Simulated scan of single mutants.
Amino acid sequence: MKVLSITPWYPHKKNSASGIFVRDLAVATSKYVKSFLVHIYLEKNLGKAVKVEKFQDDSIIVYRISVRELPAKLHFFLYPLVVFELLKIEREVKPDIIHAHVFTAGILSIILGKLRKKPVMLTEHMKFQKRFEKRLSDKLRVFLGKVVLSSADAVVVPSNFFKRYLLNLGVSNKIFVIPNAVNTESFRRGNNAGHKTRGIFVGWLDPIKGVDKLLKAVKNLRPDLNDFHLLLVGGGSRFSYYKKLSEDYGLSDVVEFLGSKKREEVSKILPETDFLILPSLWEVFGVVVIEAMACGKPVIVSDKGQKEIVVRKTGIVVDVTDEKAFEQAIEWMIDNHRKFPSSFIRKYVKNKFSFPNIGRRYFELYQRVVFGEL
């Protein structure tokens, strides 16, 4: 079976972390199918309107369609050229199914599927509203997202939490839940060789990730944190703001900002810590949670999207908007992280989120879609 994935997110030279989970899924499924992928990439100062490159990435054959980025999103007028290139790629690949990632790529995928009479499956990874406020742009995204998802032959999401979100919006389609995958060969167990307990946060430094609440909790616990060190891995436009906030809180000797790191670097840092904290206020899945657990590390996560990933022997689920409960969870984990069985945590992840497991589940769904057995 041949699968042609289409995505706006994929690792590239300017951002090696972009869409890394999309790449993971393509690699995972390539154990069962022949995997082709189209990355539609906006590029400033591109010499021509559209440029196509073809290359091999691990077990995936990738076509990168670079589109010249124009002011005021005028580059959308170049998308008929993208459809033309997609038609050429489809004729070359001859896929059995088209697999879109996020509804923006779903628009082009459904057009291609209609033109070439191919089934389209869509995996949604993002919330339609960019923030919590319901602005006109958010309402437009919700409307467009609902139309696209309802037009696909099947929709996949990585969590039941996100499935409920889509159902509440009124998405009228069959929604299947298949978690994201983790490469358990890259993320392996290790030990903190230092004297201090080390917690770690990995993610975009943004309020939606709960960074404000994390720093405030550490500030409130500061008098009792003589033997604790917190690493913050991630970048973003608020990096300087959070670094200054940490200094204002008097946490310079407790909190260390490491900045953005490549996936390979994160896979080396995680095993040298004691536990992960991801206090997101809203999360579709939280890939870093299963990466940390693949390293045998317990986790503290919020109940907003990550609850179903964690079981009692792998970590703590807490309402991070409850300041006292969140602080107590951190304090308890600092003192008791060794009580979590590292070997069990890693085995749990390998059994549930490994490439072979997730790849097989996608392959079985591909078969059902292609043969009309939904």
Rank of each mutant, 00 (worst) to 15 (best):
I200R: 01
D24C: 09
G250D: 11
I330V: 12
G170I: 04
I20H: 10
E283L: 05
F128A: 02
N45F: 14
K313L: 14
T7M: 14
R64D: 10
G106L: 00
E92Q: 14
R368A: 06
V177A: 06
A217C: 09
I98E: 01
Y362G: 00
L166S: 00
N173I: 03
S59K: 15
D224I: 11
S260L: 15
L205Y: 04
F132H: 08
L231D: 09
L205S: 02
D138L: 11
K31E: 00
E264G: 04
N173P: 04
I309T: 08
N192Y: 03
A325V: 08
D253M: 08
H195T: 12
M333A: 04
P71M: 02
F187M: 12
V233I: 15
R141W: 11
K146N: 06
V288C: 10
V202E: 03
E265V: 08
F103M: 06
Y41E: 14
L108P: 00
I97A: 05
R361V: 01
E265F: 13
F77G: 10
W282L: 08
I20C: 08
I300G: 00
F143R: 14
L78F: 09
L166H: 00
P11W: 09
K54D: 07
F363Y: 15
F76T: 15
V142E: 08
M293C: 02
S5P: 06
V349T: 02
K51T: 11
R189G: 09
P341M: 07
Q306G: 12
S30K: 00
F285L: 03
G259I: 11
F55A: 07
Y63H: 11
K339S: 13
W204C: 13
G296L: 04
P179W: 01
A26F: 02
P119A: 07
V120L: 07
G190M: 03
K130Y: 10
